[in-house]
Computed example of a mutant assay.
Amino acid sequence: MGTFTDTPDAVPASLPQWLQRQALEHGTDVALRHKHLGVWQERTWAQVVDEVRRLASALQARGFAAGETLTIISRPRPQALLAALAAQWLGGVASLFDPLEAAAEQVQRLTTLQPDFVLVEGVEDMLRLRSAQVAVRILVYLDKRGLSDSTPFAQASDYAALLAERPIDNGVPQGRLLQTAFVFYRGAGQAIEEQRVSHAELLQEGQRLVTREGLGRQEEALAARAFASGGQARYLLAPWLIAGFRLIFPENLATRDRDRRELGPTLVAGTRETYERLHRYALERLPAPGSGARRLVDWALAAQPGPLHRPVGDWLVRRPLRDVLGFSRTRAPLLVGDALPPNTQAFFQALGIRVRLWGDAAHWEAPTHLVHKTTDNWTGLQSRLA
């Protein structure tokens, strides 16, 4: 499965190789934290690399090989991330679907793509696959709740059962620098487009962010978007592997803001929608306009504060608001993708949170394999009509 050496002296040339480097050098350090049923659970770097190796071995035994794509449909969960790394460990590609995407559009896209290897969170996602008439070769699920004998895809495999299998090889990562690590899709039907991101691009952009922001092992970052975009992979996943900080997963999408407040991450890599949602959340909790308490808030958040504004305003208003939003310890508030509207940018600036824009200059194009499929179908139709 490759020639990468198990020594810290080798230069990692892919995401899985960086994972292996962290496990070799800092195996007992915490790599992941995840809240499950209200309790925070932890995985060390050694545990993470062991889980990735075991899953890669199980996938390989079922026919997954270099060049194959593992489609992942899941909310933000550590298992979804580790499955992506397992696919890349084998020289394959991971394709993550946005959990916030409308079901109808996702079904249309699945109908067009017809993926062979799929990992889903649970029954709801299986029903989407059935609606899309996807004939999967291998289907893995994370959550068994709601499964029954009548559930579609009776041949589906339990993620936990795959991990319990005995590995069949030495688990050396096969992915290479110029190979595609992730593929993302947008649109549906004949309008579908894809974005392919290589290990080289991810590592280059990730290292640039680590250097510019001075990121280190002490950081804690919240992963709330399931890495379903190129920007999230560049500016959160790659830096996590390169810098070796802790990546934190909320219990679910509904608890992400509460979990952020509880943890106070030092690194936030959010989208425009993330910051706009937090802006609205804060405004809904401010005193009514015209009240004395609201005048105090407006005074503390003035764009050009006077001598008393900073210490008094910070103590009475700005610091409590940062705590409410979960930014009490944040020193690297990053914006991935589109810029913020002026009012949202001004609000965070007034709180002393200087949001830095990291653009997502994605290149989208028509998927070549789908173009070939469409051409072949049209050629067959022409021959039948002739």
Score class of each variant (00 low, 15 high):
residue 208 R to V: 01
residue 209 L to K: 09
residue 209 L to D: 00
residue 211 T to E: 15
residue 212 R to A: 15
residue 213 E to K: 14
residue 215 L to S: 12
residue 215 L to I: 14
residue 215 L to W: 12
residue 217 R to M: 01
residue 219 E to S: 10
residue 220 E to I: 14
residue 222 L to Y: 10
residue 222 L to S: 08
residue 223 A to Q: 14
residue 223 A to S: 15
residue 223 A to N: 14
residue 223 A to T: 06
residue 224 A to L: 10
residue 224 A to Q: 15
residue 225 R to Y: 13
residue 225 R to W: 05
residue 225 R to S: 12
residue 226 A to F: 12
residue 227 F to M: 06
residue 227 F to H: 09
residue 227 F to R: 07
residue 227 F to N: 04
residue 228 A to N: 03
residue 228 A to S: 14
residue 229 S to C: 07
residue 230 G to L: 03
residue 231 G to E: 00
residue 231 G to W: 01
residue 231 G to K: 04
residue 232 Q to R: 04
residue 233 A to Q: 13
residue 233 A to D: 01
residue 234 R to N: 01
residue 234 R to T: 01
residue 234 R to E: 00
residue 234 R to D: 00
residue 234 R to M: 02
residue 235 Y to C: 03
residue 236 L to I: 04
residue 236 L to A: 02
residue 237 L to I: 08
residue 238 A to L: 01
residue 238 A to K: 02
residue 241 L to H: 06
residue 242 I to G: 08
residue 242 I to R: 08
residue 243 A to T: 09
residue 244 G to P: 10
residue 245 F to K: 05
residue 245 F to Q: 03
residue 246 R to N: 11
residue 246 R to E: 15
residue 247 L to M: 09
residue 248 I to G: 07
residue 248 I to M: 13
residue 249 F to T: 02
residue 249 F to L: 09
residue 250 P to Y: 11
residue 252 N to L: 03
residue 252 N to F: 04
residue 253 L to Y: 00
residue 254 A to R: 13
residue 254 A to G: 05
residue 256 R to S: 12
residue 257 D to L: 14
residue 257 D to P: 03
residue 257 D to C: 07
residue 257 D to K: 12
residue 258 R to W: 01
residue 258 R to Y: 02
residue 259 D to R: 11
residue 260 R to S: 02
residue 261 R to H: 08
residue 262 E to R: 12
residue 263 L to Q: 15
residue 263 L to K: 10
residue 264 G to M: 03
residue 264 G to P: 08
residue 265 P to D: 00
residue 265 P to S: 05
residue 266 T to C: 07
residue 267 L to R: 12
residue 267 L to A: 06
residue 269 A to Y: 06
residue 270 G to C: 06
residue 271 T to R: 09
residue 272 R to L: 04
residue 272 R to F: 04
residue 273 E to L: 13
residue 273 E to F: 08
residue 273 E to N: 12
residue 274 T to M: 10
residue 275 Y to C: 03
residue 276 E to G: 00
residue 277 R to N: 08
residue 278 L to M: 14
residue 278 L to Y: 14
residue 281 Y to F: 14
residue 282 A to N: 04
residue 283 L to V: 14
residue 283 L to C: 12
residue 284 E to F: 08
residue 285 R to N: 13
residue 285 R to G: 14
residue 286 L to R: 07
residue 286 L to D: 10
residue 289 P to D: 09
residue 290 G to Y: 09
residue 291 S to Y: 06
residue 291 S to K: 02
residue 292 G to S: 11
residue 292 G to L: 15
residue 292 G to I: 01
residue 292 G to F: 12
residue 293 A to L: 15
residue 293 A to N: 09
residue 294 R to V: 02
